[in-house]
């Protein structure tokens, strides 16, 4: 009797293999740029586990799934395929082990970037700034004095295009002239996953202290960002922050009322 489930022509084990291969091809080629292998591996693990749960959630289906495997491993007439499997499988494992160890000479992979946690307070040119509670001194002008607010945004724009554009790019997308000389490339500030997730005080800290001011935890950091406190004053930093949000049409994170 053919190996079937629910009257379908294809054996269960082949159905499983097909779905697994199909899911791999779909995830591997339908998403561009390609999904990093670390994430793809995790996705395929979930797909594999789910397939096994589906197969084994029904006794008959599970028996159908196992039958060809058990036959291959035990039936007298399958001696030759068994011998082939017994030879090829260890060789395959050995090859995978070898391939895993024998890697091309290449720069080390990019570890997952974590958001650096800010300190509770910083010293800015002798002035203590509480990073947890500090607010942009010009933010309130947006409602109260829109014209004055636009002036501060314009000043921030000036600061940006004189200092930041070279790395963060004309449209703040992290693709400035120098960007591709850096690894990792500068943050894409237009991405809703960057500055929109953060409070303005956080940005103040990152701009003021730059790469050298990143916290001890989570080291080593990879950041070419200079400590801008050496070149900009406090107002200029707050103004450039206004510009970053204004240009990208985003809002800083704030606490719920």
């Amino acid at each position: 009797m053919p190996d079937k489930q629910n009257g379908r022509g294809l054996p269960v084990i082949a159905q499983v293999a097909l779905v697994f291969a199909g899911a791999y091809l779909l995830l591997r080629f339908s998403v561009q740029p390609p999904i990093p292998s670390s994430v793809l591996g995790m996705y395929m693990f979930f797909v594999g586990v789910s397939l096994m749960l589906f197969v084994s959630s029904d006794d008959d289906r599970f028996a159908e799934f196992k039958r060809p495997l058990i036959q291959l491993l035990t039936a007298r007439e399958h001696k030759v395929p068994r011998l082939v499997l017994g030879t090829v499988f260890p060789l395959l494992v050995a090859y995978l082990g070898y391939a895993g160890a024998h890697t091309e000479i290449a720069p080390p992979g990019q570890q997952r970037t974590v958001h650096p946690a800010p300190p509770n307070e910083i010293d800015f040119k002798g002035k203590r700034i509480d990073v947890l509670t500090a607010e942009n001194p010009f933010r309130h002008l947006a409602e109260e004095e829109p014209e004055a607010f636009r002036e501060h945004v314009a000043r921030g724009k000036d600061v940006y295009y004189r200092n930041c554009v070279f790395c963060h790019g004309d449209n703040l997308e992290g693709d400035g002239l120098y960007a591709h000389g850096l690894s990792p490339i500068p943050a894409n500030l237009a991405d809703p996953g960057t500055i929109a997730q953060l409070q303005e005080s956080y940005l103040f800290w990152r701009i003021a202290k730059g790469g050298p001011g990143l916290p001890v935890e989570g080291t080593p950091w990879d950041s070419a960002m200079p400590a801008w406190e050496k070149f900009l004053d406090e107002d200029e930093i707050w103004e450039v922050i206004l510009f970053l949000y204004d240009f990208t049409d985003q809002h800083p994170r704030s606490w719920e009322e």
Partner: peptide
């Protein structure tokens, strides 16, 4: 943010 090789990033 993902773990990725240099080429992937």
């Amino acid at each position: 943010s993902m773990v990725a090789s240099l080429e992937e990033s």
